[in-house]
Every structure is written in structure tokens, then in C-alpha cells.
Amino acid sequence: MKIAVLREQADGEKRVSATPETVRKLISLGADVAVEAGSGFAASFADQGYAEAGAQVADRAATLAGAGIVLGVQGPDPASLAGAAPGAWVVASLNPFGARDRVEGYAAAGLEALAMDLMPRITRAQSMDILSSQSNLSGYKAVLDAAAEYGRAFPMMMTAAGTVSAARVFVMGVGVAGLQAIATARRLGAQVSATDVRSATREQIQSLGAKPIFVDSVAGIEGEGTGGYAGETSPEYQAAQAELVSGHIAKQDIVITTALIPGRPAPRLITDGQVATMRPGSVIVDLAVEQGGNVEGAVAGEVVERHGVRIVGHRNVPSRLAADASALYARNLFNFLSAFWDKEQGRPVLDAEIGDAIRLTQGGKIVNPRLL
């Protein structure tokens, strides 16, 4: 089985889908690995490192020639995969709900597209979960981005010239990214609070030393989704939450929003009117900006100012920590392939539980039930 590692072609994408470490491990399974020249440069992995790990380093055509598995970070253009073996796997973050045309392209090319971003959140798949590994870094980087824009210190400082108050940080959405944002802001000395529609996160917030901000006036209405994600809430709950959040946001120096619902636009958490209640110099970081944004006025790829508040909307935040993001992502992919590797067949063989969840195309057709 030949595994091809491609250089990313998307604008601003610095990550790579394999590292010299994971190349060695893939070869130890019995695979041949080919790496497109320059694939790891932006993530601080040199071609020499891949060669020393045992990979063939070549141009794109030679890398793809006869490959049965193609690894990527973002989904490659189907037209760029000429030369791969018939029925080859394309294993990457494929954004199936936002890139339908590309999925159709994989089907037309006879490729089997496997969306790592649809990996079910079950115990045995935790080590394969690219969303968790990348979101963890996003939460960390969001706090650093906020600190860079804030222009004031995070921790309380007592000096001979007077006291500097601790920054007040509010995290909205307590998934993997939100929890890491809380932990990072706390390590920097901020006074941290957080909220989520899922009541189960209250203890997680408290365990990190932050103050939970929850709607208690609307009993029995929670946004408990499936697979660890938030779900939809009732209009009654949304109204109560908006009232609670409005009063709290006005007192905050920094707000970090992380709320996403799979397959749908990001929920609106902060209105322009709420932004206007924050004091000038405050900062909002919207980690959901690429999926529509949690914050009214946020612009993907830009830092904008509204009512004296800076709204940060960086794209592809994990790529801004390319070396660590690549190392974690590459391990996710190795863990996935190795978990299903059949030594007799010399290739991975998926079971139904995970295979049916992540397989988008097969036999020239779109087969994932969520896309039909």
C-alpha cells in the first residue's frame, strides 16, 4: 500500500498531514510512503527529515502515482489527484456540508473520500479526533490573540505606583476550545467566567477555576446535543440567555466565542448592540467566524473595530500554530490508519461504526446518509 502525503494548496494553510515521526510509524506498518516536496516547510519539517524517516520525497505526480491512500489537511481538489489508484482513499478534513461540489468531484473521480471531521465522538475514536486536537490549540491561540490586541496586562499587579487590575475574560461555548481558552486565560492571571447551553459543563468550568454563568430561570431546557456537541435551544431559553449575557458582557474586557453546531451556521451569540455596551479597548475573538460567526460584525480574516471594540476573526487558527497542529493532526491520522490496519491485506479495513460515519463517497456515488 502506497500512502501519499500532499503539499497543501489552500491559501494560508501551513499544516501538513504527516510528520517524519508518523512517516516512520506508517512504514513500520508495512506501507510505502511518498511525500510531495516542500509539504512540511511551512510547519518546520524539512524534506530531509522525511527522507531520513524512509519516505520517497518527490514532485506531486510521482507522489500520487499508484497511491492507494492520499493524506491531506484540507480536502484536495479532485482534479489535482490524477494518478492515484482507482478507488483510492482521500483522508482529510473535507468540510462535507460546506464543500458539496468537491465531494461530488471525489465521487466522479471514483475516489473513496473519508472525512476525518465527521469522526464520531466515541471512546475508541478519541485518539483519531482531529476536531478535538485542533480545537485545543485554537482555544489556546485565541487567548494569545486577545492578549496581543488588548493593550493591557492580564494579571493583577501590585506595584509601588499602584495596582493594575486583572483582565476580565468571558468564554462563550465550553467545548474543547473553550476549556483550553479558560485554562490559558487563568494561567495568564485573568479573572475568567464562562457559559454554555449544556448544563454538564458547569462542573468543568468550576474545575478550571472559572466562574460559571448559566441561565437558571428557565428550568429543563438545555442545549444538550449529540456526540458532545451543543444542540438547538428553545426561544424561551435563548431570550433568557441573551438577557443574562448582555449584563455580563458589559463588564468584560475580553470575550472569546467558540460555539459551533455541526452542519449548520454558527449560532449568533453577541449582537452589535451588546458589543456597544463594552468599554473602548475591549477585545472579542470569534473562533466561529469561518462558519458565519458568533459575533455580529465579525469579518473572516480580519480584525475590525466597532464601537471602540476590536473584533478578531482570524481564519484557520490551528494553522497559526502549524508545527504543533501538524504534529497532533498527523498522529490523529496515524492512529486512524493503524487502528484498522490488516496485516494480511496490507491495508486498513474499516468497520461499519466508523466507516459508515466518515465515508462520503464510494463506487462513484455519494453514500453518506447525512449528505443524501
Rank of each mutant, 00 (worst) to 15 (best):
I3N: 02
R7T: 12
A10W: 14
E13T: 12
T22E: 02
R24G: 10
L26I: 06
I27W: 04
L29G: 01
L29Q: 07
D32W: 11
V35L: 13
G40K: 10
A43R: 01
E52R: 14
D59P: 11
R60Y: 05
L64R: 09
A65P: 05
G72D: 05
V73L: 03
A79L: 13
P86V: 01
W89Y: 12
V91S: 04
L94M: 01
E104P: 14
E104I: 14
G105C: 13
G105I: 05
A113W: 07
A113N: 07
P120F: 02
A125W: 03
M128S: 09
I130F: 13
I130D: 13
K141C: 03
L144Y: 13
A153G: 14
A153K: 15
R168S: 13
M172T: 10
V174L: 00
Q180M: 10
Q191A: 15
T201Q: 04
Q204N: 06
I205L: 04
S207L: 03
S217H: 10
G225V: 00
A250L: 08
A250W: 11
P262W: 01
P262K: 03
G263C: 00
Q274H: 06
A276W: 15
M278C: 08
R279Q: 15
E290N: 10
Q291K: 12
G292W: 09
G297C: 02
V312C: 09
N316S: 08
N316I: 00
A322P: 12
S326C: 09
F340R: 08
D342Y: 01
G346K: 06
G346V: 10
V349E: 11
V349F: 12
L360W: 05
G364S: 02
